[in-house]
Design a protein around this nucleic acid. Structure first.
Length: 419
DNA sequence: TCTGGGGTCCTAGGACCC
DNA sequence: TCTGGGGTCCTAGGACCC
């Protein structure tokens, strides 16, 4: 059994903790630049304010109903999140922090799941002040479904799906668009194909699903059928890319202004990288015109990736590459609305071996790189690697690959870094 | 007039290699 | 005139998540 703990209207709930006077009032929290609505209280939802919709389009409803409006306060939200997560980690052995407001718990050894869930729910509310919903079911996808129903239809905000009868009933009640892993495009496609709810989806053929929705879609469908495909990932996953991007309130078409902004982004980005104790192998910059402009001919999007000679986290080095990329794509006749930089192909310094080799060699990280390579050679005759994305998908993908020349080069580079 | 930011993963197809 | 087979690597583009 897996339980999903999900905070109700998280950002709004955080604001309420520090301002109890707004408890029964409609509240919304806005995104960066106060552009979109990204969190709503139940009262605001009842007014018909949509998630992600632009602030200016809701202006009339907001003014008319005295809706409280907050700009985001991310430091506050992540602090509150940490408090909740550490409470969970203290109490449970296996916890996956899935997002700022969600965590999966391994409930396989919990004897009375409902009672236990009620207890932790009460504790979080009492000690931290945040209301949470808890869904309990056989796997992550079903726990997501249980959570959604718990949040919207159960008085206690807790629901366990523990028999096939209940499961079938809930699957039939769940529209494909509400499923975890089925987004707008897939939902549209499925409904056009006559598949409207989760129950119908679970009866589609494997080959068709895989072809149309990719391997991840098939895993989702397998979970609806009761298999467990997505494991609980306890270890903090090291980042594979880091990005800083902004939409400007006014478009920019001046090269100097753009490069100034990009320098700032580069600093922020490499700061994040150093915080991760990691190095990046490439940088991508992108710039785009206003995507909401009605004139489609004025849409312009450009992206340029530059590889480093060796992995780095040095902002000055990165900036020279960023500027080169900007010069390559800059065209004066456009007014850019959005720019960003992405550092990717990230190598965690503290466990360099791990990023290239099988988990079995985790304990090799204490030793030198050469030792690790020797061990691997002895064990396998030739080196063994796993693609980074293989973690969850061992049932679907063959495990072994031989070490290609590409990786030999990378190892040589890594050894330079280590030295 | 005003429409977020930060991530992950998969797939197809071309380049390239032996 | 015919035009292999098996493999890797990289990228663009498109999907998804909160």
């Amino acid at each position: 059994m897996i339980a999903l703990v999900d905070c109700n209207n998280f950002y709004v709930s955080c604001e309420r903790v520090f301002n109890p006077s707004i408890h029964n009032r409609p509240i919304v929290v806005l995104s960066n630049n106060d552009g979109c609505i990204i969190s709503r209280s139940d009262e605001a939802k009842a007014l018909g304010i949509k998630m992600g919709s632009p602030f200016f389009k809701n202006r009339t409803i907001i003014d008319k109903n005295n809706v409280y409006v907050y700009s985001t306060n991310f430091p506050l939200y992540s602090d509150m999140s940490q408090r909740i997560m550490s409470l969970l980690i203290k109490k449970y052995l296996h916890v996956e922090i899935y997002s700022i407001d969600e965590a999966f718990l391994d409930y396989s050894n919990i004897i009375k799941p409902l009672k236990d869930a009620l207890h932790i729910q009460t504790q979080i509310l009492k000690w931290i002040g945040i209301p949470v919903s808890i869904g309990i079911a056989k796997n992550k996808t079903l726990a997501k479904i249980a959570n959604k129903i718990a949040k919207n239809k159960c008085r206690e905000n807790i629901l366990q799906i523990n028999c096939q009868e209940k499961l079938n009933k809930y699957l039939k009640e769940t529209c494909v668009s509400e499923l975890w892993g089925i987004g707008k495009q897939y939902a549209k496609f499925l409904m056009n194909s006559g598949i409207n709810n989760a129950y119908e989806l679970s009866h589609c053929s494997d080959s068709w699903i895989k072809k149309k929705l990719s391997i991840l879609g098939l895993m989702t469908v397998d979970e609806l059928r009761g298999k467990s495909c997505f494991k609980i990932l306890m270890e903090k996953q090291s980042k594979k890319s880091i990005r800083v991007a902004r939409t400007f309130s006014k478009g920019i078409n001046d090269f100097i202004l753009l490069s100034n902004r990009l320098s700032t982004f580069t600093n922020l980005c490499s700061e994040k990288l150093r915080k991760e104790n990691a190095y990046a192998r490439k940088v991508t910059i992108f710039i785009s015109t206003n995507p909401f402009n009605r004139d489609l001919n004025s849409h312009y999007y450009a992206k340029k990736t530059i590889f480093f000679e060796s992995p780095t986290n040095n902002a000055l080095k990165i900036i020279t590459h960023v500027m080169r990329a900007l010069r390559l794509i800059y065209k004066n006749e456009f007014i850019y609305k959005k720019t960003g930089i992405i550092l990717s192909d990230i190598i965690p310094k503290s466990k360099i071996q791990l990023s290239f080799f099988n988990n079995e060699f985790e304990n090799a990280k204490e030793n030198s790189l050469m030792d690790a390579i020797d061990k691997i050679n002895k064990a396998y005759g030739k080196m063994t690697i796993f693609p980074a994305s293989n973690g969850n998908r061992q049932n679907y993908f063959p495990k072994q690959k031989y070490l290609s020349p590409r990786y030999t080069t990378q190892i040589n580079e890594l050894m330079k870094v280590v030295a």
